[in-house]
């Protein structure tokens, strides 16, 4: 199975074969399996190791005053949970596995060593962090600007793009193991509202949601429903029409 971290970072930087292999070695060293609902990282925890999602789905979250959970972002294979360990002492939010999730666990020192060896990796990781922040900001825009249909369409379309980047969106079908309650937590809506909105998106033949798979039937239609502007994902290569890696998402952005 191909290394999702490499597939993701290729959207920004080109790696030589030797560098690509270093990335492959990086995620092969040590892995850890997290059960559904298990914390990968807890708010306040001091972090010494980097966690990279290899399979499954995780979420960044904060607990609100009354124990309610606000999901801020989803992490799919290739996403790095905690790059900020280099700057911050401890986690300012929690990360939880939504479904069974396997992470590569890499000591901070190893990453630091790699960064001095491979300068293009530094840039690629920096880009990765900025894009993560941009994804978070989109959730803020949801509030007051996007109605329910736009919010859900936007999340779905963004996930489609991200899964395409790591080549895990065959037939525009992506894994979707979330409950309606979890989807509500992540869009600032309520479960019945989510239920109704999903029904509308199905009736408009934009999506099919069966079992734990989301299939986008009409990507352009979903994009319009979301009023999606891909610039915040900074997919430089796709925008510039570069061959190879960019082809995976060109039709979506």
């Amino acid at each position: 199975m191909r290394n999702p971290l490499r597939l993701k970072l290729e959207q920004y930087a080109g790696f030589e074969e030797r560098e690509g292999r270093r990335l492959d070695e990086l995620v092969a060293q040590r892995t850890q399996v997290f059960a559904p609902k298990q914390d990968i990282l807890t708010e306040g925890e001091k972090v010494k190791e980097i966690h990279i999602v290899l399979s499954g789905l995780a979420a960044r979250y904060k607990l609100l005053d009354e124990g309610e959970r606000q999901i801020m972002a989803f992490l799919i294979p290739g996403d790095i949970c905690d790059l900020e360990v280099f700057v911050l002492e401890e986690m300012d939010h929690g990360i939880s596995a939504m479904t069974e999730t396997v992470c590569a666990v890499v000591p901070a020192e190893t990453i630091k060593g790699l960064l001095t060896e491979m300068s293009c990796l530094t840039q690629a990781l920096w880009w990765s962090t900025m894009t993560d922040s941009a994804v978070l900001r989109e959730r803020i825009i949801d509030h007051g600007r996007r109605d329910a249909r736009e919010r859900i369409a936007h999340l779905f379309y963004e996930l489609l793009v991200r899964y395409r980047i790591i080549d895990e969106a065959k037939d525009n079908s992506i894994p979707f193991p979330l409950t309606q309650e979890e989807l509500a937590d992540s869009t600032g809506l309520t479960p019945v509202h989510v239920n109704r909105t999903l029904k509308q998106l199905r009736e408009d033949r934009l999506i099919e949601l069966k079992g734990r798979v989301l299939k986008v039937l009409d990507p352009q239609g979903l994009r319009r429903a979301a009023r999606f502007n891909p610039n915040y994902l900074h997919l430089r290569k796709a925008e510039e029409g570069l061959r190879g890696e960019a082809d995976r998402v060109k039709d979506l952005v």
Binding site: D147, A148, L189, T190, P191, V192, H193, R196
Partner: peptide
């Protein structure tokens, strides 16, 4: 909360 969430979103439309 459910009712208000739906009415709120529908108001935007």
């Amino acid at each position: 909360r459910e009712a208000r969430s739906i009415i709120s979103s529908d108001s935007l439309e």
